[in-house]
Amino acid sequence: MLELTSVFLFMLFGGMAVGCALSMIVQRNPLYSAISLVGVFVSLACLYVTLAAPFIAAVQVIVYAGAIMVLVVFVIMLLNVETEVRRPLRLRYLIPVAAGLSFVLIAQVFFMLFFVGPVSSAPSNVGLTASIGAGLFTEYILPFEITSVLILMAIVGAMTLARRAADIPLAARSADSSGAAGSSFTDPINDSRISGSRPGLTEIVGREMAARAIERLESRTGRGQGEET
């Protein structure tokens, strides 16, 4: 009975995981893909629970589904990304590589099935909170600390990049378009006291951005500035 239940649960959550993964790849709308990925994470977490690793399952849900994917969905919503248009396939040469890799995967599964055989399902405490904590802070303390420093570096790097982009003087960035005639928004930007997009300057920056966008649009559509002035 227990055997049957675990098989049924495996089929259920495994099927969900595969289905959600396929849906993630096939979907054209980025938000649909993101939500499918959340489905993958949640069904994987359920699989971990059936494999007696509750801590990993909980962390999977909290970190991946609850934090990382929320940020991804947040950005998709914020940018209002449209449905992806179907582009001509550029990386055509990757198709045989994919076929080869999937063949290797299937071969591995068959190898496991026919040569390795079932492992004894003796209860282990691999996935429990205490064992993971003890492992992280004793045996694997060095990799653990290195990983945390690595993540810290990524955060600091992202902050640096974001700051640098904000520190470039806006007037210098728009030097090519600021001299254009007819644009009345450039005056505050050319002011030497204003050097970048500091908070509080949002209105000026916004006006500048809008002016440049209009200019770009006009030059692209061929409507000259003479029409306006």
Binding site: A45, P54, V61, I62, G66, V73, L128
Partner: peptide, 25 residues
């Protein structure tokens, strides 16, 4: 009663965000 009850509650509440986000979108 299980080992990770507290994490379970935190995980569930963090999944609940999707309801609100998806409703908004």
């Amino acid at each position: 009663q299980f080992d990770i009850a507290l994490l379970y509650v935190l995980g569930m509440t963090s999944v609940g965000v999707y309801g609100i986000m998806l409703a908004g979108w």
